[in-house]
Amino acid sequence: MDHKEDKRFRVAGHEALIGIALVLINFLWWYGFAFGLGGQPVSDYDWILGMPEWFFYSCIVGFFLMVLLVIIVVKYMLTDIPFDDEGDDHE
């Protein structure tokens, strides 16, 4: 039982790390575009679809990027594992 659990926990630990990686990517993208492009005076802004460039990239593209990354992670990186301990009810 211990051996099998170790394997499941490795999967779980690995997926938690993926979660942290996603947050870091999300944060850097969000912060970089917002305060990088948005830091200049408003009169110097470039505009995309009527919105300031920083906002478009940071909030709108950033959101779509995260959705895409989450879909990729779910499709290719997560593993299906059972949650129940079969017949093991000692607790």
Partner: peptide, 21 residues
């Protein structure tokens, strides 16, 4: 809006961190 967008994280982070374990 920028500030509020930090909440996108909640959509995936909670379930990935707590997740299967």
């Amino acid at each position: 809006v920028l500030l509020a967008m930090s909440q996108v994280v909640t959509g995936y982070f909670v379930l990935l961190i707590l997740g299967k374990k």
